[in-house]
Design a protein around this nucleic acid. Structure first.
Lengths: 139, 139
DNA sequence: ATGCGATCTGTAGCCACTACAGATGCAAGG
DNA sequence: CCTTGCATCTGTAGTGGCTACAGATCGCAT
């Protein structure tokens, strides 16, 4: 049984390269308690283990899915304590999905408004612009 | 010719009610130079005029369209100086539109991923969850 | 004159990072 | 063993776009 992956742990730079999370951000996650305090070398450098690497991947992926830090904290608590239930996780996911869908809808409204405004514009070299007129109309 | 609207100017609270912009936010806009310094009463309260009201409406609308403060600064500069051209405004609008569309696309990708994850979930009362499994997979 | 809501200034907090400065750690080459 | 030079350390401040106070003052109606 050779110790392959866990032999000496990962320095913060390796963690960063492996996960794509910025070094400063990793330290930030530790500061706010999203990542645990890792071991230190004699000189004081951080040394991470395999499970901490997994956790950072987890956070990275959840962030990419648009979960907030607060939500990730909850997801992690569920993932690490064994007392969670799958339906709780499902609930959080559905809730988050709804907020993503809301954002999409409101951005699509913006898109339409902007498209309409741009279409009305002559693009000429004149200082008279229907886009600015629209913005300046008193409601 | 009765002085109706401009008679004594608007207090900040009126500005807020008329435009829907928070009082603190109006002061913030002044601090960062997005709104001009208005006149003051003898006692020091802000008194806004009609054109400042128009400007605040402008800002409000542009924010609702998702323009950043920096972009609004540029739009305002164009709107207030007469040296701007319509095609410049058009350009900014198109650029902003593109960034809105990018956001929509990326949110739609999130939406799909979340929907897929949620669908795989049994929602059971068990501590074994494909959603967390997905997040925990090493890439 | 008084009461009370509106407004004042100034500062700190929010989120999720990012960007330094200045001091060390660590590993490889000479 | 020593230097070199990159990696990492801590701590603080800045970003955007507000929001939320605290404690003082204004202004208007009674």
């Amino acid at each position: 049984m050779a110790k392959i992956t866990d032999s000496r742990g990962y320095a913060i730079g390796e963690m960063s390269k492996l996960t794509g999370v910025n070094i400063e951000t990793i330290r930030y996650y530790e500061r706010i308690g999203l990542m645990p305090h890792p071991d230190r070398t004699a000189g004081g450098n951080r040394q991470y283990n395999q499970s901490q690497l997994k956790q950072l991947f987890f956070i990275k992926r959840a962030r990419e899915l648009g979960f907030s830090i607060r939500e990730i904290r909850a997801l992690l608590a569920m993932a690490l304590d064994s007392g969670f239930t799958c339906s709780e996780v499902h609930g959080m996911t559905i809730e988050h999905l709804a907020s993503v869908q809301e954002k999409i809808t409101s951005l699509q409204r913006l898109e339409q408004a902007l498209t309409r405004m741009a279409a009305e514009c002559s693009r000429g070299d004149v200082p008279d612009c229907p886009i600015l007129d629209t913005l300046f109309e008193l409601a």
